[in-house]
Amino acid sequence: MKIYKKNSALAMAALAAFLITTGCHHKQAAAPEAPAPPTTAPAPTATITASPETITPGQSAVLTWHSTDATDAAIDGMGPVPTSGTKTVNPTATTRYHLTVRGDGGSAEATATVTLGQAQTQAPAPAQEQMTEAEFEQNVKPIFFDYDSYSIRPDAQQAIGQDAAFLQTHPNVKVLIAGYCDERGSEEYNLALGQNRANAAKTALTQVGVDATRIRTISYGKEKQFCTEMNESCWQQNRRDQFSLDQ
């Protein structure tokens, strides 16, 4: 039902880059090349391109940059990068990537912009952000459980880590954890089991530093199902903790 991004750590980086870019670099770099100092070393050059230049939420773009006569390079928000290279980015908003290279002959800058479709360019993310449910669910992924279990599996632990990272970069967001069970077993017992599942995720998130007061839990037991076929792949879909924005 939803498309989840493969790597939200990259999204973090992209977002951070975006914040820094918009925060520290209001004025567009007008001069692509610095005036050449009177040395023998040639002045460096830099180019950066994004492909595609326009993406829809959830898609990724590839940044490609080249430089000549440079000894080091950095992209704002990403830190030092090779003097030439490529990188896949998953920006969650329209993002300008600002490349700075330095060499013996001076420095050079270049920028590339990845535009997010649906014209969300006017809303830079300030501290008091208005997050949409879709954006939240894109970044805070559900975790899944074994049969009749509320233990956090290794794959769920990994997801919890990514979920926690997102939550920590958005400290104003409150989260509702809803525990769900597959359709087997008894209604009342599954309500308790779902509660244990929600509580397990809450404990796991607080252990990696998310403030417990931001988290509310609820159990839907087997009262609401994501998938209604009677087979294991469907049951696995239903044995989950779903995270959503809490008001």
Binding site: E188, L191, A192, Q195, N196, N199, K202, T203, T217, S219
Partner: peptide
């Protein structure tokens, strides 16, 4: 009744 007010049903 069953309650999870202490974090466990």
């Amino acid at each position: 009744f069953s309650s999870s007010r202490t974090g466990d049903p």
